Computed example of a mutant assay.
Amino acid sequence: MEELKKIGDELLQEITEQLLKIRLDKPDPEHWSQASVPYLQQCLERLYQAMIRYPFAKRTEEIHFFKHIKPAVMAQLIFMCEVHNKEIYRPNSSIDKATRYLVNELVKIDGFFTRNNVLYDYYKEKLDGSDIIFFVRNVKDRFNFRDLPIEVDPVYYYGPKDFSTGLDFMFAKFRAYEMLRDHLEIELEALQITDVPPDELKFTGSPADFVQLVEIFGVKVRPVDPDTGEPMTEQKLFEFLKQAFNPSLPNGLDFNTLKLISGNSDLIEQMSEALKRKYKQWEDEERDIDYRKDEDVPGDGD
């Protein structure tokens, strides 16, 4: 056990240092959470292989591993996945919407702890009376302990049976959700002390490209002018799209003048080629893959 404990302690120290490096390199939560997940998957696999290489000699060693070492690694992986999930649904159109979203997510986390209050109290208060069933892999009765029913985590039945106990995942989730709660509270505080507007769209094409964009909108999706109730004129549509996309254009020009001086555009051709590349990428992702590359496939080459 001493060797396995040493490996676990060294791995946890490495994880702390590596996750800090990732955050410094990718300050945005969406990016550092995504970059951390593959690394943490590798760490979990390394921990599993170490457990196989150094089997437990006593039940107390098994309990320590599944109560303290594995949940510490697994918690980081759960936390990173949850940060990613929260970021992809987080509104960025206004500070008010982002604030309401974060507050709602914090309420959900509190609800999770409330629903699991008995186990969470066991975790928080560092109790050990049920360790011999919570953190041991082979038990006589996983559904009851000393004539009392206990909760069963379905995650136990997924993955290698020798790398999970009844509740090690739940204890990892407690730790992960505590970190997630702290993270969301910091993000909420940051919103409350800043007045930075959301990122603006920026049109990077030429003036001729922007002219063609206005013409495409005019044909396909011309908005209604709120002042008249009628479809926008080209000039009004031009002003509307200028405000939305922030193109780099000469000052003081109306739409007709810009059309005369901007020259030709290949925006439609660029868009068409971009769509073709995207469709090709999707086709490549969806094509079937033959896993039998190095085997003789019946019927092939006969």
Rank of each mutant, 00 (worst) to 15 (best):
L188P: 04
M170P: 00
L127D: 12
H183R: 09
R181H: 07
E151M: 13
A172Y: 03
I132F: 07
V152Q: 09
V139P: 05
F143A: 05
E185H: 05
P149R: 04
P154I: 09
L184H: 06
S130R: 14
L148I: 10
F134C: 08
K140L: 12
P149Q: 00
Y156M: 15
F145Q: 00
F169C: 06
I186L: 02
D182A: 13
E185C: 02
G166R: 13
F143D: 03
P154E: 05
P149C: 03
A176C: 04
E187G: 01
P154K: 10
D128S: 14
F163V: 06
S130N: 12
I133T: 14
E151Q: 09
F169Q: 11
D162C: 08
Y177S: 07
E178V: 11
M179L: 15
Y157N: 12
R175C: 10
F171G: 06
M179P: 02
Y177N: 10
M179T: 09
I150K: 02
I133Q: 13
E185G: 03
D182H: 11
S130V: 03
V155G: 01
T165G: 02
M170K: 11
E178P: 06
K173C: 02
E178L: 07
H183T: 01
D162T: 14
G129E: 15
I133H: 11
F145V: 00
I133A: 07
L180H: 10
A172I: 01
R137W: 07
Y177F: 15
R137Q: 15
M170I: 08
A176P: 09
I150L: 03
K161R: 13
K161L: 14
R142V: 06
K140V: 06
Y158M: 12
P154A: 07
A172G: 10
L148T: 03
I186C: 01
H183A: 11
V139Y: 01
F171T: 02
L188A: 01
D131T: 05
R137A: 08
Y156C: 12
E187M: 09
G159W: 10
P149N: 01
V136D: 04
D168K: 08
V155H: 09
D131C: 14
D141H: 06
Y177Q: 12
D131I: 14
